[in-house]
Structures are given as C-alpha cells and as structure tokens.
Amino acid sequence: MKKLLLLPFAILFTASVLAQVNTGEEAPGFTYTSLENEEVSLSDFDGKVVYIFFYGAGCPHCLDNGPITEEDIYQPFMDDTNFVALGLDTWNLSVSANQSFRSETGISYTLLLNARQSLEDYYGNTSSYDRSVVISKEGNVVYKGTGFVDTDTDQVIAVIEEELSKTITSAEPVDEFPDRISLAQNYPNPFNPSTTISYSLNKPSQVSLKIYNMLGAEIATLVNERQPAGEKTVSWNALSSSGSTLPSGLYIYQLKTGKQVLTKKMMLIK
C-alpha cells in the first residue's frame, strides 16, 4: 500500500527536476524587479539578442566571474542597439546583497532579483548558477552554458556575434553590406605626416586597428570598439600619434575582427 502512495509522488518529483528548456526551443518568459526597483520582462526585449547571466549574489565563483560577463561579454556589444544583457539572481538574496554583488563585480547591466524560478525553467534545478544563456531575436535559446562562465566565454561571444550578424536594421540595408572583411592600402602612401586607412566589415564586429613599427612595437591604437557592418575610414597623423617624432621608414597597420587578422605596410617619409 505504501508503494502505491509513494509512486505518484516520485513520478511528479522526477518530472519537476527534469523540466527544462533545450537549445533551439522558445525561451521561457519572466518578469522580475530590477535592482533599481523597476519591473523588467523578457518580452520587453523582443527582437533583440539577449545575454543572461544566472548568478547567486553570495556565490564566490559568481563574484569571480561577474567581471568577465561585464568586460568580455557585455562591454564589446553594449553599443549595439540590438543587444541587451541581464543578470538574474537565482539565490533570491536581498537588495543589499545584490548591491554588494554589483559593487564587487563592476557589473553595469541590469540585475534582476528573486529569479530562482527562471533557473528551474531553463535548467530544471536550482544549482546550475554561474551560467551563460543567449536568446535569439526570435526568442529562442541559441546557447545554454553547461559550465561556469569562465569556461565558455569564447563560445558565448561567438554566438552573440553570429546572432547579431543576422539582425539587419532599416538603417543598414542588406544590399549595402560588403560581402567580406577587407583592408585597403592607405592613401597617400608614402605619406607625411597624415594618411587615411579604409576597411570594410561584412557584419557587426569587435574591431581593433593598430599601428606597429617594423620591430613589432605598438605605435598607436586607432580603433578599439564594436562597429556595425559597412565601409570605415580612419585618419592617422604620425607626428601627433606617439607624442614624439617618429622616424621615416616602413610601418605596419593591422586590422583584427574576431579571429580574422589583415595586415598591410605603409611608408612614412620626411
């Protein structure tokens, strides 16, 4: 008789543990109060790529990895209007605990309180915190981390870049996008003291454009930011770049976008 009474309970308990969303499925919605005491819903960001950091405000490794979500994941994409980041406190701790968490981690994006239910909805348990999830602009889970944030940061960034590359706005018609990343020869070349460097991006990317001498020493950083797709132009004045007079000779300018690196030479003459 006892077995008959316990069996339904066991079945229900197992089902609740296993209930979770899988990659490719619609992201479970939620509405929580932010640290600033504002009501925030996932549906507020329909049409945007959403990054979620599931954390515990009193979790030691979440404190260690919080700065990674801010500096490596949020900041490179923060100027893209099609991107948003949210932190969900799955430990359901107090406002003061979350304020301390923000202060210690330096996180500047929105933190939501009492969000343990979402951890159950996404992971089927209450122990899978310090995880990253990415939601597409269509509202589907496109990435669901299985380890701590510091173990899959590169994968998360790659997924966000891929999803943002699919997001085309009316201000950026698809037929105006270059079909590849390219770096043009500077003009004029040789030059003294200023020259112009042009390059093309076929999708929104984190961009680095730097000048080096022939020994490999960095002379100047011209660009270090996330940029939308399109044609770009940057000017460089060799006399004012380093605060001192640069010698005549060959210099290298290098464009980095994600894993792609393009390099060309130019000549400064006096």
Score class of each variant (00 low, 15 high):
Leu7Arg: 11
Leu12Asp: 07
Phe13His: 01
Ser16Lys: 12
Thr23Pro: 01
Gly24Ser: 04
Glu26Ser: 13
Ala27Val: 03
Phe30Arg: 12
Tyr32Lys: 11
Ser34Trp: 01
Leu35Ile: 14
Glu39Val: 09
Asp44Pro: 12
Val49Ser: 03
Val50Ile: 10
Phe53His: 14
Phe54Tyr: 09
Ala57Val: 06
Pro60Thr: 07
Gly66Pro: 06
Glu70Met: 08
Gln75Asn: 14
Pro76Ala: 07
Pro76Asp: 09
Thr81Gln: 10
Gly87Met: 01
Asp89Asn: 15
Asp89Thr: 12
Asp89Tyr: 08
Asn92Asp: 15
Ser94Gln: 08
Ala97Tyr: 08
Phe101Met: 06
Phe101Asn: 05
Thr105Ser: 06
Tyr109Arg: 06
Thr110Arg: 08
Leu113Ile: 07
Leu119Arg: 08
Glu120Phe: 07
Asp121Trp: 01
Tyr123Val: 01
Tyr123Met: 07
Asp130Asn: 15
Ser132His: 02
Ile135His: 04
Ile135Cys: 06
Ser136Asn: 03
Ser136Ile: 00
Lys137Thr: 07
Tyr143Phe: 14
Lys144His: 06
Val149Phe: 02
Thr151Leu: 08
Thr151Glu: 14
Asp154Ser: 15
Val156His: 00
Glu162Arg: 09
Glu162Met: 03
Lys166Phe: 02
Thr169Gly: 12
Ser170Met: 01
Asp179Val: 11
Arg180Cys: 04
Leu183Met: 13
Gln185Met: 05
Asn186Val: 10
Asn192Cys: 03
Ser194Lys: 11
Ser194Tyr: 00
Thr196His: 01
Ser198Glu: 15
Gln206Trp: 05
Ser208Pro: 00
Gly216Lys: 13
Leu222Lys: 05
Glu225Lys: 15
Glu231Phe: 12
Trp236Ser: 06
Asn237Gln: 07
Asn237Phe: 00
Gly243Asn: 11
Thr245Tyr: 02
Pro247Glu: 13
Tyr251Met: 03
Ile252Ser: 04
Lys256Glu: 15
Thr257Arg: 02
Lys265Met: 00
Met266Asn: 03
Ile269Asp: 10
Ile269Leu: 05
